[in-house]
Computed example of a mutant assay.
Amino acid sequence: MSLENLAIEKQKELLDLWENELDEAFPYGIQISSSPIIDDPKIIILGRNPGIGKKELEKGPPHSSMLELQDENSTFGFPKHHDYIVGGSSYRIAKRMRNIVFKENPELLSETIEMNRDFLRTPNKSALQAWKEQSADDNPDILEQYNSIIKKTVQDLVSQGNPNLIISFTGYSDNEMYPMEEMRKIYDFEPVLESQYRVKKRNRDKNGQIRKTEYRATYADLGETKFIGLTPHLSNPNIPKPVQKMLIKFISDKMPS
Rank of each mutant, 00 (worst) to 15 (best):
K55G: 09
M115I: 13
S148D: 14
P61I: 02
K125S: 11
L46G: 00
F102L: 07
F76Y: 13
P123Y: 08
Q134W: 01
M97Q: 06
K185P: 11
S110A: 09
P36F: 00
I248T: 12
G77N: 12
W131L: 02
M66E: 10
N105E: 13
Y197H: 05
E144F: 13
Y215K: 03
K95E: 13
Y146W: 11
R48T: 09
I210E: 13
G88W: 04
H63M: 07
M183G: 09
P62C: 12
N5I: 09
V86I: 08
T122E: 12
G60Q: 07
L108R: 00
P191N: 01
Q70A: 11
Y219F: 15
D221H: 13
L17Q: 04
I30R: 01
S252D: 02
E9W: 00
D141I: 10
V192P: 03
S89G: 08
K245G: 09
L128W: 06
I142A: 06
F250E: 11
G53C: 13
R121C: 03
M66K: 03
V243K: 07
S173N: 11
P240Q: 09
D156E: 15
M66V: 09
M177D: 15
V86S: 10
T225L: 06
D188K: 12
H63A: 15
P50V: 03
N162C: 11
I239R: 02
T218Q: 00
F76V: 06
I44F: 10
E214R: 03
Y28M: 00
E214S: 10
I37D: 00
N175V: 15
T75E: 09
P41M: 01
T225G: 02
V86M: 03
L222G: 05
T170L: 10
Q31Y: 04
R117N: 07
E4Q: 14
R211Q: 12
I186F: 04
L128S: 05
I166M: 05
N207C: 02
L3Y: 07
K254Q: 14
